[in-house]
Write a protein that binds this DNA or RNA. Structure first.
Length: 248
DNA sequence: ATATTTGAACGTCATGCATT
DNA sequence: AATGCATGACGTTCAAATAT
């Protein structure tokens, strides 16, 4: 790891979560139906009635850096506090059913249908790593250990078992029953894992795309409502003037 | 000019939910 | 119950913006 220290990540996440907290608590900044469905959904799913406060998050961040023996407990505490938030797609679709002007996030079935059946046969080399700029590098097999999140240490790196045992893009059609040797079983497990990761990778991309769409949608709705609000205020002022003319 | 911060995007894991 | 999908959370990387 070069310039990215762990504190930075905590800080970054803290900032993000703070913004979320502020956003969700601002009066009027979120349409009521959204806010209601968010909180309702949150309670339904997690049994919690509040979003973590800044102080809570800060405490968590500090606790994260404390003694190693407490790290597992901290991790679970943190998990509980940072529990799942309501699905934005659900919120938007609920919103759109209430408000005719709000478009639904569509499923893009045509695209999905084109890709998913062939996904297992896609020849994506798993030893290639795509950078954020879109270029592909040879993967160095250095993967961040997720235990780093629980220990509070600098992220440790573990050497991954090379995933190049199989020719990538070649999907073996062996049924589980035909696998005998431990090596074959291991290969099958690796293949399944790679397939799962690839599918999840694609799902995550799609999910982010939808999320961006959702955010854009909300932003445009805010813009529309602001204009509407302004007009109504102006109208109110005009009516006030008419009803109570100045007697000078 | 260099260091630091910030924001966006990514891959992976964990988990809730719907379907089979 | 098993399975697959969708998505929140997390850690990581990179580039642009900002501070020194």
């Amino acid at each position: 790891m070069s310039k990215c220290g762990r504190k930075k990540y905590i800080k970054t996440n803290l900032r993000q979560m703070t913004m979320e907290t502020i956003d969700s608590q601002q009066d009027g900044s979120i349409p009521d139906s959204v806010a209601e469905s968010e909180s309702a959904h949150m309670q339904m799913q997690t049994g919690q009635n509040s979003i973590p406060t800044l102080a809570q998050v800060a405490t968590i961040a500090e606790a994260d850096e404390s003694a190693e023996s407490e790290s597992v407990i901290d991790f679970h505490k943190r998990r509980e506090i940072l529990s799942r938030r309501p699905s934005y797609r659900k919120i938007l679709n609920e919103l759109s059913s209430d408000v005719p002007g709000v478009p639904k996030i569509e499923e893009e079935k045509s695209e999905e249908a084109g890709t998913s059946p062939n996904i297992s046969a896609m020849a994506v080399p798993t030893s290639i790593y795509q950078t954020s700029t879109g270029q592909y590098n040879e993967e160095t097999e250095l993967a961040p250990s997720h235990m780093a999140a629980t220990t509070g240490d600098m992220p440790t790196y573990q050497i991954r078992a090379p995933t190049t045992a199989l020719p990538q893009g070649v999907v073996m059609a062996a049924s589980p029953g035909s696998l005998h040797s431990p090596q074959q079983l291991a290969e099958e497990a690796t293949r399944k894992r790679e397939l799962r990761l690839m599918k999840n990778r694609e799902a995550a991309k799609e999910c982010r795309r939808r999320k961006k769409e959702y955010v854009k949608c909300l932003e445009s709705r805010v813009a529309v409502l602001e204009v509407q609000n302004k007009k109504l205020i102006e109208e109110l002022e005009t009516l006030k003037d008419i009803c109570s003319p100045k007697t000078d």
